[in-house]
Simulated assay, not measured.
Amino acid sequence: MADNITGVGGGSRPDTGVSPLKGRTGAGAPAETRGKTTIADGVVAKIAGMAAREVPGIHSLGAGMARAFGAVRERVPGGGSGAATRGVKVEVGERQAAVDLDVVVEYDVSIVDVAGEVRTNVISAVERMTGLEVVEVNIVVDDVHLPDDGDDETDADEGRVR
């Protein structure tokens, strides 16, 4: 079965000689190849963000200020929709995509190993779900989450005495 995905992003399948993004037209073309499918940058960013978060050793995504603004935005009704793409930037072409990630890793994990697992998971998920070829996954480790770091940003607002 030939997949035809066209538009904002997509990759080619060397075994078929048909770009999954460029559709064919006409009665002689198989039904699944008639037309084109467009994949928005935000879709690729969500897939990449979810795939990165699945890797053990990743505490969160996003640089310090992005995480702080994201935490505030998530408390506002209807404002939490950007959480899946926080810390993720993508560039999507017709057949290829590039991904940039800002991550916070857990303390006492090998950053090199975690970065390798993130790259593998992100590339696998994006290529499998979109047909795009992922040409690079750049990772910036912005912070290390320490075991005694509080996850709840409201702790600082409550004061020292309870």
Rank of each mutant, 00 (worst) to 15 (best):
E94L: 06
L61K: 12
T37Y: 00
Y107P: 01
N121S: 15
A84Y: 08
V114W: 02
Y107K: 02
A40C: 07
A83E: 15
A66N: 15
G131Y: 04
V103C: 00
G82T: 14
A97I: 02
R119D: 10
G70Q: 10
G131C: 00
I39L: 04
S124E: 14
A115E: 13
D41N: 02
S124P: 01
V112L: 14
V55P: 09
V103T: 02
V55I: 14
I47N: 05
V92I: 10
E127R: 11
R34A: 12
A97Y: 04
K46S: 13
G80A: 02
M129Y: 01
V126Q: 07
G42V: 13
A51L: 08
V88A: 05
N121D: 11
R86P: 07
A84V: 14
G49H: 01
A63V: 14
V99H: 04
G42Y: 06
M129Q: 08
V43Q: 00
V112Y: 02
G35F: 00
P56S: 13
R34G: 11
N121V: 05
D41S: 01
S60R: 13
A48Q: 12
A97E: 14
A115Q: 01
R67C: 06
M50H: 09
G87R: 04
T33Q: 09
A52L: 09
R95S: 13
S110P: 00
M129I: 11
V103W: 10
E32L: 12
G80Y: 06
G80H: 06
T120D: 09
G93L: 05
T85A: 07
A98G: 12
K46D: 11
V90G: 03
L101H: 11
E54R: 14
Y107R: 07
K36A: 12
P77K: 11
A83C: 05
G70V: 04
R128G: 03
T38Y: 06
G78M: 15
G87H: 03
P56K: 07
G64F: 09
A68Q: 13
M65C: 09
D102F: 05
R86C: 03
L101K: 06
M50K: 09
A83M: 09
K36C: 03
E74L: 08
T130E: 00
A83F: 06
I58W: 02
M50L: 09
H59V: 12
V44L: 00
T130F: 05
A71P: 08
R67K: 10
E32I: 13
V122I: 08
A48W: 13
V88Y: 03
I39Q: 00
E91D: 10
D100E: 06
R67I: 08
G62Y: 03
V88T: 02
V104H: 05
V105P: 10
A71N: 14
V109P: 01
V43T: 08
G93W: 07
V118W: 07
G42L: 09
A45P: 10
F69M: 15
K36W: 10
A98C: 06
V103H: 00
E117C: 03
T33F: 04
G64A: 12
G62L: 12
S124H: 09
I111V: 12
D113G: 07
T120Y: 06
V105H: 08
T130H: 02
K46A: 10
G49V: 14
E94W: 05
L61G: 09
R34F: 11
D100F: 03
G70P: 02
Y107S: 02
G70N: 09
V72W: 03
